[in-house]
Amino acid sequence: MARLWRFDEIVDTDVLAPGAYMKAPLTELATHCLEAVRPEFAGQVGVGDVILGAPNFGVGSSREQAAEVLRHLGVAAVIASSFAGIFYRNAINLGLPVFTLSDDLYDHPGLVDGAELAFDFDTASIRLAASGDVIKLERLPDFLRDMILDGGLIPHLEKRFQAATPAGG
C-alpha cells in the first residue's frame, strides 16, 4: 500500500534536485532527490506514495526537475499548506498533482510519516488506512485540473493545436 512521506522542515528545490547532478540525466538526478535531508527517500519511495510538506514547499530555483524527479519516482501527489509559486506551476505543467490543505488538517494525528493511505485524484482526497479517515484536499481550478489530466502542459497544448487544425488539413 502507498505510504505518506511527511516533511516538517522546509523542502527547497536544491534538496529535491541538487545542483551537482543537474547536468546528469533525470534517472540519475532522481537517485539524489532529497538525499541531503532524507537519504533513504529515493531508494524507498514507491509508486503511489504521497508527500506531505511544510509550508512554502518547493521554495527556491525555477528548475522543474524538482517536480519532475518526484513524478519520475512515482509520487502520486504532493500536499502542503502552501507551495512556492514556481514549483506549483511547474508541478502542474508536468502533470504532478499538487494540492493544498488547511493548517488544521495538516496537524491531523493520522498524517504521520509512514502512514499507509490511498490517494484519489478525482475526489481530491486521501483515505488513511489505519483510521479510515478521509481527508479532503482543496480542489484545483478546472483548467489546472484538466492540464494535469492531460498529463501536463505539453500534451495539453498538443491537444489544443490538434483541435485547431482544420479537418483533413
Binding site: 527556491g60 525555477s62 522543474e64 514556481i86 511547474n90 508536468l94 502542459l153 505539453i154
Partner: peptide
C-alpha cells in the same frame, strides 16, 4: 525568464517572473 531570479526585471518597471522549462516551452 527561465530562472527563479527573473523578478530582477521588476527594478525597471517591467512585470517579470520566473518559470520552469515546460512552461517556457509553452
Amino acid at each position: 525568464g527561465g530562472d527563479s531570479h527573473s523578478p530582477t526585471g521588476g527594478a525597471f518597471g517591467a512585470y517579470m517572473f520566473g518559470i520552469g522549462a515546460t512552461e517556457m516551452a509553452g
